[in-house]
């Protein structure tokens, strides 16, 4: 497989073209359109009967990996989810998008990013991917940590907030969305890249690919198999509603708006 790609590739003059194995972690989260509610006893967020989907940033990561495969730059896309049994649905969606196989590490505990990164490190050590594409944040806990932690634990290069990924031989060129605009960096592979919104627009899985995905393998493991300490480091003392804003007044014209901003709000 590798030899075929290497000889057919234009860039073989620069060395052996790398045909990557890509690992993509995916998380099952509350759908982005759901307005969540805090439990009245402040013990957490009420997730009963709430629509769940794949974290949008993970969807972008899966899409990117599949595009590399379609372009002949990846030979295999492996997706992995660490979470409750129902994460199998999330993995099936990734398989329906085009991932080749899946790994589910079933746990009913809410794992913190550090624990997730440690398990992913364990998976990376057996799977030996060339590239791991991680969503930049999960839209439930909004932590924005897992990819960076994983990269640190592996001692690999990292590029966060990617809006473009190009791979040539053993290097990846990443365009990143940073506070002042865009920054381009080059990473030595293997590496961890975290995806931002504008990396791509994920596809919708077609019906035939959804059917096909049902037959793709999902390997099940438990967190205990990794022999690492995944106990929480943080204690959640309470979860509250944010202070709510009340709607103010409607103004009828630009003149009235300007007047209110000057004489009532005194902000201009």
């Amino acid at each position: 497989m590798l030899a075929i790609f290497a000889t057919s590739s234009k860039s073989c003059a620069k060395g052996i073209e790398r045909v990557m194995k890509i690992l993509v972690p995916v998380k099952r989260v509350v759908d982005a359109n759901v307005k969540i509610r805090v439990k009245p006893d402040h013990s957490g967020v009420d997730l009963a009967n709430v629509k769940m989907t794949m974290n949008p940033f993970d969807e972008i990561s899966v899409e990117e990996a599949i595009r590399f495969k379609e372009a002949g730059k990846a030979k295999e896309v492996v997706v992995v989810s660490i979470g409750p049994g129902k994460s199998e649905e999330t993995l099936r969606s990734a398989l329906a998008m085009g991932a080749d196989r899946a790994i589910l590490i079933e746990t009913e505990e809410q794992l913190e990013p550090l624990a997730v990164a440690k398990i992913l490190k364990g998976i990376a050590s057996t799977e030996k991917p060339d590239l791991i594409i991680v969503g930049k944040q999960a839209i439930d806990d909004d932590c924005n940590q897992t990819g960076q932690m994983l990269s640190a634990l592996l001692g690999w290069a990292q590029a966060t907030f990617a809006s473009k990924i190009e791979v040539e031989a053993d290097r990846a060129k990443i365009t990143r969305e940073v506070d002042g605009g865009l920054q381009t960096v080059e990473l030595r592979l293997p590496a961890v890249v975290t995806s931002d919104l504008r990396l791509n627009e994920p596809r919708y899985a077609s019906l035939p690919s959804i059917m096909k995905a049902k037959k793709k393998p999902i390997e099940k493991k438990t967190s205990a198999e990794f022999g690492i300490d995944i106990s929480p480091r943080l204690t959640i003392l309470k979860t509250e509603e944010p202070e709510s804003r009340k709607a103010g007044v409607r103004v009828q014209s630009t003149v009235e708006l300007l007047d209110k901003l000057k004489s009532e709000a005194r902000v201009i």
């Binding site: 509350v30 307005k35 969540i36 805090v38 967020v45 839209i139 439930d140 806990d141 909004d142 929480p232 480091r233 943080l234 204690t235 959640i236 003392l237 309470k238 979860t239 509250e240 509603e241 944010p242």
Partner: peptide
């Protein structure tokens, strides 16, 4: 710290 796009606020204590 805010979670869920600021729709809930968590109070957390670190043990590290």
């Amino acid at each position: 710290r805010p979670i869920y796009a600021g729709n809930a606020i968590q109070t957390v204590q670190t043990r590290d």
